[in-house]
């Protein structure tokens, strides 16, 4: 099963992630990220806010999609469609920035494109047309035979690796330094994915960083950018 998780979290998976900087391009423009230390701070912010939210949604989508290791009885297809649509609305409510909504749906669509051929399964058809990325990730995990915790781990991990690579390219940073930065965040990634469960109110994580919202909106207005988000 581990191999499927590695494949999902692999930056080589052609799902369009490389054209998104996770806010780091604008963070660099705004002077918030300029060196390894400030990059680590930025990645930690992102991991514990939008990364944690994505992890919760991915785990929930995995559980909803069902599958051998999700611990869920197979739901009737109609119920699954409704449940995934409801989760997509939860993702929308947790992503008030129009630019980040577009970026998430764009990456969700890209992952569906590759995922439905890599792990063929009728459950792909139960997703909305352009699902938020964590939903696509959760479904991919389920049909690849993974558990909700794996989906959360992939979401948490991807929330830092995309922006880390973008920062490395934009600042011409030492790739080994960037690898060190992401490796040092390993425990934090594990903590975030372990906490990707509903709270006492039954609510999934909704961590938000208003700074990321602002950066995303300013970035979307630029015409001189390398990255889609």
């Amino acid at each position: 099963m581990t191999a499927a998780l590695l494949a999902l979290a692999d930056s080589r998976l052609p799902a369009g992630g490389h054209t998104h900087s996770g806010g780091v391009e604008q963070a660099i423009a705004a002077g918030v990220v300029s060196d390894p230390r400030s990059l680590e701070t930025f990645l930690r912010r992102r991991l514990t806010t939008s990364g944690s939210t994505a992890a919760g949604l991915a785990a929930a989508a995995c559980r909803t999609a069902g599958g051998p290791r999700t611990g869920a009885a197979p739901a009737p297809a109609g119920d699954r469609v409704a449940a995934l649509r409801a989760l997509d609305r939860e993702a929308e409510a947790r992503t008030p920035s129009p630019a980040l909504r577009a970026a998430s749906r764009q990456q969700g669509r890209g992952l569906v494109r590759v995922g439905r051929r890599a792990w063929p399964d009728p459950v792909w058809d139960d997703l909305p047309a352009h699902p938020h990325h964590p939903l696509a990730l959760g479904v991919a995990a389920a049909v690849a035979g993974l558990a909700p915790g794996d989906a959360a781990a992939a979401a948490a991990y991807l929330s830092i690796t995309g922006p880390a690579t973008a920062a490395q390219r934009l600042l011409a940073m030492d790739p080994i330094t960037v690898a060190v930065v992401t490796a040092r965040l390993g425990d934090a990634v594990d903590e975030v994915s372990a906490a990707a469960v509903p709270d006492a109110d039954g609510w999934l994580p909704a961590g938000t960083d208003p700074l990321l919202d602002l950066l995303a909106e300013v970035h979307a207005d630029r015409t001189d950018r390398f990255f889609a988000s």
Binding site: R12, P14, G16, T19, Q106, R109, R113
Partner: peptide, 12 residues
């Protein structure tokens, strides 16, 4: 990368 290794954005 955008035209060869990960063509997602172009396919979109």
């Amino acid at each position: 990368t955008a035209i060869r290794d990960d063509i997602t954005a172009n396919l979109d």
